[in-house]
């Protein structure tokens, strides 16, 4: 268990018993994962791959069958760990009769923000979520994008070190999605660790430092976005050659034709292609 990790998952397994005969369904299979502090971490996978189950176990909402989890060095599911964690569930639903500001105040008090600091904390999180103007409207009048943004405000009102976002852009239009992307970047700039579960691979590629891909309950890939997307068996020659001799010859040849070598880099495939390649067929399983 690493204390430098925001989340440390060791050998996590979760079985569900389904039906009258109690047939075992393995949702998460021996998952080990280290999520470093201060980074945006993308947890990807097709529907039913065990992402949400993993997040629920991490948050202590359901028990694990086996394995251990720590959050910021403390065992998960403890009050101390939750105090330092913010969570935005998928498709959040809040009491419609409350105004946005009342909801964030309510969540601030539940998260342990002292009464004398609630006002400042609420206004700060509403501002970050760009919800200040609509904060006095009942939640029942909010659009889908506003619901996600007020959900984000309630998740960060107690200034957590770790923020877990489950599908924060689900059903949100591209403009709202871009706004949520900016908020994630703003939180990263403040040194927060963000765990992002999303199907919008383009957005994940843009905002995440590291990604993990799960399939059928197992971890199939984990690493820095730049590393996992680079195809190291191939090279993109933007201007010149690979070997020094060839490069020299190429540079000379190119120079003879008026061209110059500016960089040598690895070609990239899109995160979407990588995702499809890794999880092929699991959707139909």
């Amino acid at each position: 268990m690493s204390t430098s990790s925001a989340i440390s998952v060791q050998g996590l397994t979760k079985d569900f018993r389904v039906g009258l005969r109690g047939i075992k369904l393995r949702a998460v299979d021996n998952l080990s994962l280290e999520i470093p502090r201060g980074q945006v971490f993308g947890l990807l996978g097709p529907n039913g791959c065990g992402k949400s189950t993993t997040l629920k176990i991490v948050l202590g909402l359901i028990p694990a069958t086996s394995g251990s989890i720590s959050i910021l060095g403390s065992p998960s599911a403890t009050s101390e760990a939750r105090q330092r964690t913010g969570f935005l569930p998928e498709a959040p639903y809040f009491h419609k009769f409350l105004t946005g500001r009342e909801l964030v105040q309510y969540c601030a008090r539940l998260s342990g923000v002292p009464a004398e600091k609630v006002g400042e904390a609420v206004e700060g999180s509403l501002e970050l979520a760009a919800m200040t103007e609509a904060a006095n409207r009942p939640i029942g009048t909010y659009s889908k994008g506003m619901l996600q943004r007020i959900g984000l405000a309630q998740a960060i009102v107690h200034d957590p070190e770790l923020v877990i976002l489950d599908e924060p852009t689900a059903g949100v239009d591209p403009v709202g999605s871009a706004a949520i992307g900016r908020m994630i970047n703003a939180m990263r700039a403040k040194g927060k660790t963000i765990v992002l579960c999303s199907h919008l691979l383009g957005q994940v590629e843009q905002v995440c430092d590291r990604v993990a891909i799960m399939d059928r309950g197992r971890l199939v890939l984990e690493g820095r976005v730049d590393e996992v997307l680079a195809q190291r068996d191939r090279h993109v020659i933007t201007v010149a050659d690979l070997t020094p001799q060839a490069r020299q010859a190429a540079e000379a040849a190119l120079a003879a034709h008026g061209a110059t070598v500016t960089s040598i880099t690895h070609p990239r495939r899109s995160l979407e292609d990588l995702f499809r390649e890794l999880v092929t067929g699991s959707r139909d399983a």
Binding site: L59, L61, S79, R82, F87, P89, P92, F94, C107, G151
Partner: peptide, 8 residues
Amino acid sequence: LTLLAKPL
């Protein structure tokens, strides 16, 4: 789900 993810 939202509430129980807090220190409650």
